[in-house]
Simulated scan of single mutants.
Amino acid sequence: MKRLSIFVFAICVSFVSFAQKEVSAKSIFEAIDKKQQIQYDGVVVIGTLDLTELSNKKRKNNKASWDEYKSTVEVPVVFRNCTFKGDVIAYKNLSKDGKRKSIAGFNIELGESSTTYSTDFTENVVFENCTFEGDSEFKYSNFARVANFSGTKFSQQANFKYAHFKGEASFSGNLFSEYANFKYADFDDQVYFKNARFRDYADFKYAHFHDGVSFKSGRFQRHADFKYTSFSNDTDFQSTDFEGSNDFKYSNGKRYVSR
């Protein structure tokens, strides 16, 4: 009887441990909104994590014909070995009816009938060895410190268009299954895409690498777009595979590519 009790207790403990591995996106949002530091390892995040609706959201004063709001994550955000079942949103563009405007994963251009929401990060941001099963939207985000996405898998589009990385950034070992959008992205410090794999369109058009970038041993399976891209002298494409087409027109990066 004693052995049976121990066995039943062990099953209950295992069940509780398993249940604790699931965390709601809502609870994470609420913690961030209360300025509580976020640190998770090995959890499954259920639901959409929308960081554009924080209580510190402010309307930006601009001359554009559309409304624009900015939220700010003011605490370190650390996720390691986590799986996000829903979308992770630090950017969205809503039409008048309140619906996100997109077609086949590509956001519609802004217009008078839309409102944009985006999110900045003032502390370290870590999504290390994670899996994004939904969309990941970081368009217009400013990363003030370290941005570590190394070893992460993006199952859907990864949108970093116009993102500004002020500190060191890492996307080493990443798998981009669909559109990887870094168009107009600005990198002040060093950035790493070592061993990164791009299965679909890799868009670095107009991106600016101020202090070096490494695509060493990277793999581009479809079109790699570096048109108008600005590289510094510390650029590394050593052992990078371009299995599809590539475009370095009007950039200063072709001279760094070694076959």
Rank of each mutant, 00 (worst) to 15 (best):
K183C: 06
R59A: 06
I108H: 01
N174Y: 03
L110D: 11
D203M: 09
L51H: 08
S258L: 15
A10T: 15
T48A: 10
T240P: 00
S71G: 07
D189M: 10
V257A: 07
R197E: 00
D97Y: 01
E30Q: 10
D241V: 03
N148K: 07
F160H: 01
Y69E: 08
F231C: 03
D135Q: 09
F237Y: 04
G105T: 06
T48P: 04
R259S: 10
S14F: 14
R255I: 15
I11C: 11
K139R: 11
T83M: 04
T83S: 03
K92Q: 11
I28E: 08
S245D: 15
Y117D: 10
E53I: 14
A158D: 06
D135H: 08
G218Q: 01
A185Q: 02
G244R: 02
K2V: 12
F138Y: 07
D50S: 07
L110Y: 05
A185F: 01
R59T: 05
E128V: 03
K2P: 04
A19V: 08
E133Q: 14
N61P: 05
N195F: 00
E53Q: 15
T52R: 11
F79C: 08
F143Q: 00
K205L: 02
E168G: 04
K249Y: 09
Y250A: 04
N233C: 04
I11S: 05
I46R: 12
K21S: 15
N142D: 03
V257L: 15
A19H: 07
K153F: 01
N61Q: 13
V77H: 00
H223K: 11
G244K: 01
E123D: 11
A180S: 11
A147S: 15
S102K: 08
E109I: 13
Q20V: 07
S14R: 03
A207T: 14
E74H: 05
K153W: 00
M1E: 14
I46L: 09
K96Y: 09
F149S: 01
R199F: 07
T235Q: 05
N56Y: 12
E109S: 06
I6H: 09
N159E: 15
F231W: 08
E109V: 12
L94T: 09
K60H: 05
D135E: 10
H208Y: 13
Y206R: 04
T235R: 03
L51Y: 09
T131A: 07
E243L: 10
A64T: 12
Y117V: 03
E22K: 10
K2T: 13
N107Q: 10
Q37A: 14
S214G: 06
V16L: 14
F18R: 06
V77G: 02
